[in-house]
Simulated scan of single mutants.
Amino acid sequence: MSDPSQADDHRSTQPPTIQGPPSAAVITRLLVNEEFSDFYRATLRPLVQFLINQGSSIHLAADIAQETMARAYRRWTEIDHPRAWVHKVASRELVRHFSRAVEEPTDSVPEPSSLAPRPDTAGEWEARQATLHVLQALPPRQRQVLAWTLSGYTPTEIAAELRMSPEAVRSSLKKARRTATRHIDENGEHQ
């Protein structure tokens, strides 16, 4: 006869078996994860570009975008308009960053990421963004409104997200276009 304590030890090392169908909570979590994953893949790169259009470095834009996506995941079931929500949250975080004196990293990207599959192409990717030089010449509000516009938002949608009147958004956009045109003419940047 074998020792009963050994039999108990053997049973305790066996993984518990799950019986029956998964609970509604498990199914809901799986659906939320799948929905968020699709959103993440479709939105991360445009969100990084949106931040770069507002004057961010690629490194800072990637960090803010990742943190914003993590916040969105934690609040996913509470967010009505996720694309607008991540743009607003990321934009606010960028403004907070600009208002602080923080050193920016100057080294190259150390390893591949979803934003730069080949680290050596990060600079090329950033350089291809023809509008960056022009956007950097704009005052912050004009740059912000133009970045939202380049991300596909209408003046009415921008006004709602930035808590401005649509007329103020249109005015900032008009000034941004005028300033951009003047900058291109003065600097000969016809990219």
Rank of each mutant, 00 (worst) to 15 (best):
D3Q: 11
D3W: 13
S5N: 12
Q6I: 11
A7Y: 14
R11V: 07
P15T: 15
P16L: 14
I18R: 12
Q19L: 15
Q19I: 15
S23L: 07
S23D: 06
A25D: 03
V26T: 15
I27N: 02
T28R: 14
L31S: 07
F36C: 03
S37M: 09
S37N: 10
S37A: 15
D38C: 06
D38G: 09
Y40L: 13
Y40P: 03
R41V: 13
T43A: 01
T43P: 00
L44G: 05
L44R: 12
R45H: 07
R45N: 08
R45L: 13
F50Y: 01
S57M: 14
I58S: 12
I58M: 05
L60S: 03
A62S: 07
A62L: 03
A62R: 09
D63G: 04
A65I: 08
Q66A: 00
A70R: 14
A70M: 11
A70Q: 12
R71S: 11
Y73T: 09
Y73A: 13
W76E: 09
I79G: 09
H81Y: 03
H81V: 13
P82M: 15
P82H: 13
A84T: 02
W85A: 14
V86I: 06
V86W: 00
S91C: 15
S91G: 15
E93D: 09
L94D: 02
V95P: 04
S99I: 07
A101L: 02
E104Y: 01
P105H: 01
P105A: 01
S108Q: 11
V109D: 00
E111P: 00
P112I: 04
S114E: 07
S114M: 14
L115N: 04
D120F: 05
T121Q: 01
T121M: 13
A122R: 04
W125V: 11
W125Y: 12
W125T: 13
E126K: 08
A127F: 02
Q129N: 04
A130P: 00
L135M: 15
Q136R: 10
Q136G: 06
P140E: 04
Q142P: 02
Q144L: 14
Q144R: 07
A147T: 06
A147F: 02
T149D: 04
S151H: 09
T154C: 05
P155D: 11
P155V: 05
T156L: 08
E157Q: 14
E157Y: 05
E157V: 05
P166A: 12
P166C: 13
V169K: 04
S172E: 03
K175P: 01
R177W: 07
R178A: 06
T179R: 09
T181D: 13
R182D: 09
R182M: 07
H183T: 10
I184Q: 10
I184N: 03
E186H: 12
H190F: 07
H190W: 00
